[in-house]
Structures are given as structure tokens and as C-alpha cells.
Nucleic acid binder design. Sequence first.
DNA 1: CTGTTAGCGCTTTCAT
DNA 2: ATGAAAGCGCTAACAG
Lengths: 334, 334
Amino acid sequence: MTTIYQVAEHAGVSLSTVSRVLNGRKTVNPKLREKVELAMQELNYRPSSVARSLATNRTDSIGILVSELDTPFFGEMVQAIEVTLRQANKHVIITVGHNDLAQEVDAVEFLISRRCDALIMHTEGMSDEQLAAINQDRIPIAVINRDVPGIDDGCFCLDNEQGGFLATEHLIAMGHRQIGYISGPRNKHDAMERLSGHKRALAEGGLDFLPEMVFEGHFQELDGRDGLRYLKQQNPALTAVVCANDWMASGAMSCARDMGLDLPRDLSIVGFDNLMFAHHVFPKLTTVSNPVNKMGEMAAKSILNRVYDQQHVLQPLYDAQLVVRDSVFDLNSL
Amino acid sequence: MTTIYQVAEHAGVSLSTVSRVLNGRKTVNPKLREKVELAMQELNYRPSSVARSLATNRTDSIGILVSELDTPFFGEMVQAIEVTLRQANKHVIITVGHNDLAQEVDAVEFLISRRCDALIMHTEGMSDEQLAAINQDRIPIAVINRDVPGIDDGCFCLDNEQGGFLATEHLIAMGHRQIGYISGPRNKHDAMERLSGHKRALAEGGLDFLPEMVFEGHFQELDGRDGLRYLKQQNPALTAVVCANDWMASGAMSCARDMGLDLPRDLSIVGFDNLMFAHHVFPKLTTVSNPVNKMGEMAAKSILNRVYDQQHVLQPLYDAQLVVRDSVFDLNSL
DNA sequence: CTGTTAGCGCTTTCAT
DNA sequence: ATGAAAGCGCTAACAG
């Protein structure tokens, strides 16, 4: 590998002149600049980002921590981050936490020891306090899908309450009155917010909220099956169910089919997240979109602002949007 | 940030002793080792991988180049790579090429300037020659889903021919005789191998290969629609179609439904790749599995062998496997 | 505007 | 077994 020193020698200038050319300083004689650039070409010189990092105490790398990589949700998020950051000539180091606290902590230590300039994470495992502490004492953090007190200008969330509201409101507008709800785990913020939205829609629609019409799942496909079975049992006249994510909606769908129900005629289903497969299931799933790519982009830009002095306009809260497809039956049409 | 020097001072030993402890050298007096370790604890010392990289000329980082990140195919691949590599205390720097040659070349330069120790790529854009040249002159490469002459012990492929064979063989076993084929682009290796397998199955099943029963697609969902329409027109008695990937199979499915066909009764469909959504479509898709996570793991291990002197056992060619679900109708049952 | 010099934090001979 | 010293490739005062 050619070094800056060899370039200097070849061009007949000093080390620092080459460094200046490299960093685009204006205070370089055009003739010298030309000579240096030629030398770099001839020697096929590539700057060592490692040496530069050591000297500047910056790595231009941002650590990413996600639960998984093999689902479109995280894939879209990470891709948006990578594209945004690489445009700014930064790079991403990706780690996967597998929803396991120990692995997440390990990953964060790993990223810090790699001297990342900042972290972007989507995690459920670490507590607000842990995150805030790291953000203050060690390294700037941006968080997606979570609102952590103590991390200012670094949290980017979907308006989950509004999303939950939208889903149920749609069902009510389509004439449904017997509506079940398959929620996410009680201890998850976003899950509970979605449920609140559901309750608000019920109230505004003049319907009573019945606790027995809520089944607590864990965002897994199987919970959709269990949930639907439970809800059907609670209320055989059920005409619709809203699921707190698309996976559970998909599970509810196959369960419904196993029960011999004709979809969407006999049962309407609404999902949440608008994952890539939402339009692959049959009937195509009506769901609430989660602009995860936008949030990824924002998280990246917030880092660009905080760490690299850029000036992007940030938007912390994202509106949910209802994506109407074919999984809700219009009872008014009868 | 604490440095090795401060640790040395705190422990009352020399710089080099700390370094030895850090690298687990055996030639350190246990008492001193203990003192050093205590000092590291007390000062909350974290080694700087940047400084180490500069000194060792190694970054312990591996660059990844994929076309996309937002599809399960690449997601699974990258995740397998990350997990394998991080166990070995290496890390991955991920770039996305978007199927664009210029961006791919750019990404590779980027990764090299980041001083990655090796590259793992899944790319269609760069030529065999380009790849082989980079591998020889610049940086070790492992390639997934492609067999590049000149990259030894670094190519990991699915047996596409066998996969194509399996798909069609299954259809024939189920009594189908009028079988259409929606292929990938003619200029893609894997696409053509899958088609060869199809032809071999036809031949072994005693069926004629009819060129007009093949539609050339580009692996996009829409091609499945176009393909099915075309094939139906060529042969209205068509009972089955094999698609060279799951996306096109999904497209063919919705098209079939639009045509008023009852699936799988009126039309059997087989896909390829076994993407995550394959069991979300209805009817659940019978398809050929592509162990992309295994190949990712192997690619990672091959790098571990070549660059970091580890000794993993490698498997270059992977058997395709038929995953039987519900999208093929058994004509023998009539 | 250009060159000299001193680090950045670590590894690695080479002596002791 | 331990320490001293040089160097990895670059940036950033500082002096001229």
C-alpha cells in the first residue's frame, strides 16, 4: 500500500502538502496540488482511514444494533440507514442482538470498542436508563421506535396510538360492531399505545370496550392463531379482529381458514406494520403502515447533525397510515 | 478514553507488559498480570481497535456487498454472516449495491479504503474478470451464488440445476403433463441452470420440451403475471407452471386468481428460493429451498480460513431441497 | 503558502 | 520475564 509519504516524495513536496490536498484545503498552490494529484494517481494511492481515525479520533463509522436482519422490517430500516450514511461518506457496522439482553449489551460494547462515532439502535431489551446512561457518558445514540427520556433529538417513533385508532376506526366505518383485538405484550410500550388507540376508536364509535375481547400475544405468528381461537370462543358473533402486527394477522388468517371461514366475508382482519408480505397473503392484508425506512433515515440524519455538524431537518414523530387492501369486508354493502 | 499507557502507569509496569496481557501472551508473571488486570478494571480501560489496526495492519473487519437488504433473501444471508463473524470477533461493514454496476464498484472501493481484511459479495453486476482481479491483486473475496474462475475456495453455490430438476420432477410425479416454465433472464447463470434442470426432468419423465412453453422473466413479481398469461394462451390446457423464483410464483398466483382459477385445483405452481413469504401466500407455496444462510455462513468461514488462519470445513455446493406445501394439486388423486 | 515536528494508541523487535 | 524504543499512516499545531 502506498503511503502519504511516498506520494510526497514522488511529487517532490512535503508530507503536509499532500495531507492538505487530501483534505481539500484551499491553501494549496494549484501547481503543487496538480503535482500531488498526479502522484497519487501514478502510485495508485488510497488513504488509510485507519491512520486517519487514529489521528483525528474519529472513525466515521456508526454502529447499528437491531434485533434481527432477516425480516423486511429491519431490512428496510437498515437499508435506509446505510444509504443515508454512505452518502455522507460514513459507514455502518451492523450487529444483531436477537432480542437477547446479554447479546445486546455485548454488541454495544463491541461497537464502542470499535470506536464507532455513534450508535443507532432498535432494541427492546435495554432499559431507558441504560440507554440514557450510554448516551450521556459514552457515545451518542439514536433510537428508533422508542421514546427514551434523556435522549433528546434522537428518538424517532411512529404514532402508535393513532395507528391503533385508524385500524379500529376503519372497521367501525365498515359496519363492524363485534371487534376483537390481538395485542402485543403488555410490557411493551408500542403494543400498549396501539391498544389505547383501539380503545379510543371504540369509544368514539360508541362501542363498549370489553376486556375479554382482547387477547395478549407476543407479536408472533402463532399468537394470531391462539388469539383468534380464543376470541371466537369469547364471542362467536365476532366479525372482525385487529391484530397488533402483521405476523399475528397472518396467523389469524390461516387459523380462520382452518376453521372453515371464508375470508374476508366471514371475518375481517386488520394488521399493523405493512410488512412486505402483507400483500402476499390472501386476501391481501389491510394494515397500518409503519414508515420504518423514513425513521431509519431520520435516525441517520440525527447522527449526522449531532456528530458531524450537518444541518438536516428532523421529524421525531411519524403519522401512521391505513393501507386499505382486501381483508376487510364492508358490512354496509349487505 | 483510557490508554494503555495510563494502565501501565497505574499498575506500575511498562507499556509492553500491558500489551502482553492484552494479547494473552503466556510470558507474563501471574502477579503482574493480576495487577494489570486490576488496573484495567479500575480505569475502565477499553483497547482501541483503531490503534491496534494501524499497528498490525489488520482491521478485523469484513466488507459485505449485497444488492439489497430489504428482502428476506439477503437479510438471512447477511445475518448468518454477521453471527458467524462476530463469534470470531470480527465485524461486518455492510454496503448495498442496488444492482447497479457503478454503485457496486463504488462500494468495493469504499470497503477497500476502509481497509477491510476481506470481502464477501453477492453481486450480479461485476464480471468474473473484475472479481478475480480484485481477489488476486487487492483483497480476498468470497462470493455467494456464483462460481468465479480464479476465486478458489471462495465460491458458494446452490446446485441450481438440481433444484430446477426437483421442481419439475415433483410436478410430473403428481401427474402433470402440461407444464409451463417462467424463467429468469437468459443472461443469468443461475436462471439458465434452473431451466436446464427443468429440461432434464422433462426428458427423464418422457415429456417433450417445447420452447413456446417457456416465458423469460426477470425475477420480478410482475413477470409472473405476464408469464402466466402468455403460457395460458400458448396452451389453455396448462395444468402447472414452475417459476424460477418465489416472486414470480406469487405474481402468477394473483394473476391466476384474477383469471378466476381455483388454486391449486385448476393450476399448480412451484416456486424457487423458499423466501419467507412462501408460506404466507395462499395456497402456501411449494418451492425449492435455497439455503442462503448456510452459504452465508460458509462464505464467512472461508474468509476465517483464508485470512485468519482458522480451520473450518467448507462445502462449496449446496443441494437444493423441495419444500412441499399446498400449491401443487395431485392429479393422480382424481 | 509550505515544511517541520510531535503525537494518536498500540504492537513488536531488541536488549536486559 | 520485562522494559525501551521504533514505527504503523495520518493530522495538526507551529514556525518560517
